[in-house]
């Protein structure tokens, strides 16, 4: 049967559409000229300038602080939630499921304004603490869903076998459940981490003076000038992202 070429063409055009803008951005970060369509020769001067921007590095520090702490807490909360949702079927779990699921489909801006109003009503000052709370809140659902999906593939007869052989609940938890589910929990954590590092909208609503994160810094750079600097910063971020994707891909291949 002769197949239509149309899907192939859509696929190729789609890939160009996805990757050309990013490619132009990377190339331009090495452009000595300020203007994106004028090639002024190869240069690393924007990178040199970037390394002198203390506020960017301060923002990066805040971002990492929040991402690491929010990921840790949401991995614990999310894994517990997934266990509960998988193991029990009751009214409580119906409500629990709705609570976990709704943040996934809720537009960011609604979550942002809701948390801002919540903190304003309670007169809680905005800062790193409120950003941390906000990030845990949206990360929990993602971790829970990833772990829940893994639990559905999990063979619980192993647990029964362990029980028959006399293992207590803590032994089962530490020697069987956690080691076997670790890849799923880590995958959820990785997702939570990348969401936290990248979040702009919610963070923007709940951040206060002095709690600028990297996305907020990038946003103000986009709004108020210095395109070549953003090119250089973006290229660095993209490199780190690609490296992480490559590593996680390698890890997955090794397991398979």
């Amino acid at each position: 049967m002769r197949r239509s070429r149309f899907p192939l063409i859509v696929c190729i055009l789609g890939m160009l559409f996805f990757y050309l803008p990013i490619l132009v951005l990377i190339v331009n970060s090495f452009n000595a000229s300020r203007f994106s369509t004028v090639w002024g020769g190869f240069s690393l001067k924007w990178y040199a300038l970037l390394f002198q921007q203390d506020d960017v590095w301060h923002a990066l520090r805040n971002t990492m602080l929040i991402a690491v702490s929010a990921t840790t807490v949401s991995m614990v909360l999310g894994t517990l939630a997934a266990f509960a949702l998988h193991r029990f079927h009751s009214r409580l779990q119906d409500a629990h499921y709705t609570l976990v699921y709704t943040p996934l489909v809720m537009p960011d801006i609604l979550m942002g304004i809701g948390l801002l109003l919540f903190f304003a009503a309670l007169r809680i000052p905005l800062g790193l603490g409120t950003i941390f709370i906000a990030h845990v809140t949206f990360c929990v659902s993602y971790v829970a869903m990833v772990v829940l999906a893994r639990l559905q593939d999990f063979d619980f007869s192993i647990v029964e076998a362990a029980q028959d052989l006399g293992a207590g609940p803590w032994t089962i938890l530490w020697r069987i459940l956690l080691p076997l589910l670790a890849p799923g929990i880590l995958a959820g954590g990785l997702l939570a981490f990348s969401l936290s590092v990248d979040d702009f909208v919610i963070t923007f609503f709940v951040s206060g003076p002095g709690s600028t994160t990297l996305p907020i810094k990038i946003y103000s750079m986009i709004k108020y000038g210095k395109p070549p600097l953003i090119n250089a910063l973006s290229t660095l971020i993209l490199c780190v992202t690609f490296l992480l994707i490559w590593v996680s891909q390698r890890l997955r291949e090794k397991r398979a």
């Binding site: 509960a84 609604l110 929990v140």
Partner: peptide, 21 residues
């Protein structure tokens, strides 16, 4: 015991803010 941590967190920081709006 297993459900409480996530339920409480989401009630406090997701449901309440949504209703406060």
């Amino acid at each position: 015991w297993i459900s409480l941590p996530s339920v409480l967190w989401l009630l406090a920081f997701f449901l309440t803010p949504t209703l406060i709006v």
